[in-house]
C-alpha cells in the first residue's frame, strides 16, 4: 500500500515539472555522460595475465570553461561494495561543437591491489544474479574553472566465466544524419539502432547541446532544435543495468541562421 502513495508522489512530482524546468538532456554545464570499462568484466583468474584495465569517462565541458583537475573520488556512502582507487590521466580532446567541447578522461587501476584478498567483501552481500561476482566502486571528480562534477560507477570482477565478459552494445544513430542542416526550433525525429550481444536491461539516454528532447529515455523520439545557430551535438548513450556496459554514439547537426 505504501507503494501507491509513494508513486502518487512521484507522479505529482513528474506532473509538476513544467516545460521550463531544467532539462537533464541539455549539456549546458560540466557533465560526465558515461564511463566505459575495458575490458567490460575482469575474470578473477585472469588478473595475473591482464596488463591493462582502463576506464574511459566521456565528459562535456561548456565552451567558456575548461578542465583544471581530475582526481580520484572515494564513494564511502555506498553500502555493501568495496571502493578502489583509480589514477586518472589528463583529459583528451575529442570534438568541438558551437557551445561545448567533448573530452575523454582515462583512468587506470592498480591490478595488483585487486588480487589482494582483503579487497573482497562478503560474497553474500555482493553477488549478481546467479553469478559469483564481486563489484568494485570507482569514483572521479572533475573540476573546471566554474564547476565540478563527481561521477561514480561499478565494475565486475567475476570468479567464473561471465556473460558480460567481452560483450558490448553496438549502437548507431540512424536519424539525424551527421552534419545535416536544420532550422532553428525545427522538430526532428531522432532514432537509434541498438544491437545487444548479451541479454541485458538497457537504459537509453539522449543528450543535446541545445534544444529539447521529448522523451530522452526512448530509442525513438523528437528533438526540437534550439534558438542558437551553428554546430549542435546529438548524442545517445546506452547503459547496461547489470553488466555495467556503456557505449555511445553522436552526430552533429548544423542549425542554420
Amino acid at each position: 500500500m505504501k507503494f501507491i502513495f509513494f508513486f502518487t508522489l512521484v507522479l505529482l512530482n513528474f506532473i509538476s515539472c513544467g516545460e521550463e524546468e531544467e532539462r537533464p538532456e541539455q549539456l549546458d554545464r560540466l557533465r560526465v555522460i558515461g564511463v566505459k570499462t575495458n575490458p567490460p568484466v575482469i575474470i578473477f583468474d585472469d588478473l595475473s595475465s591482464i596488463t591493462d584495465f582502463e576506464l574511459e569517462a566521456l565528459v562535456s565541458v561548456p565552451k567558456d570553461d575548461e578542465i583544471i583537475d581530475q582526481i580520484n573520488f572515494v564513494d564511502d556512502s555506498f553500502l555493501f561494495t568495496q571502493t578502489i582507487d583509480i589514477v586518472w590521466n589528463e583529459p583528451v580532446f575529442l570534438e568541438e561543437f558551437s557551445n561545448l567541447n567533448l573530452y575523454l578522461i582515462k583512468g587506470k587501476i592498480d591490478l595488483d591491489s585487486l588480487q589482494d584478498n582483503q579487497q573482497y567483501p562478503d560474497l553474500n552481500n555482493d553477488k549478481l544474479e546467479e553469478i559469483s561476482s564481486y563489484i568494485f566502486r570507482y569514483g572521479l571528480e572533475v573540476k573546471t574553472q566554474n564547476d565540478n562534477e563527481i561521477v561514480v560507477g561499478n565494475f565486475i570482477v567475476s570468479l567464473t566465466e561471465n556473460e558480460y565478459q567481452n560483450q558490448s552494445f553496438n549502437i548507431d544513430i540512424t536519424n539525424p544524419i551527421d552534419e545535416s542542416d536544420y532550422n532553428k526550433e525545427e522538430e526532428i525525429e531522432i532514432k537509434m539502432n541498438l544491437e545487444k550481444s548479451v541479454e541485458e536491461e538497457v537504459k537509453v539516454i539522449w543528450f543535446t547541446s541545445e534544444g529539447k528532447i521529448e522523451n530522452p529515455r526512448s530509442k525513438e523520439t523528437l528533438l526540437t532544435t534550439g534558438t542558437g545557430e551553428g554546430k549542435h551535438l546529438v548524442l545517445v548513450g546506452t547503459y547496461g543495468k547489470f553488466g555495467y556496459l556503456f557505449n555511445y554514439d553522436f552526430v552533429s547537426i548544423n542549425v542554420l541562421p
Binding site: F3, I4, L11, F14, R217, S218
Partner: peptide, 20 residues
C-alpha cells in the same frame, strides 16, 4: 495501481511501468 511514466528507471521504450 497501474503506473507508467518516463523517469530515471525507464527501459528502452522510455517508460517506467508499475503494476501493483
Amino acid at each position: 495501481l497501474e503506473l507508467a511514466f518516463p523517469g530515471d528507471g525507464a527501459d528502452e521504450d522510455g517508460k517506467i511501468e508499475f503494476d501493483i
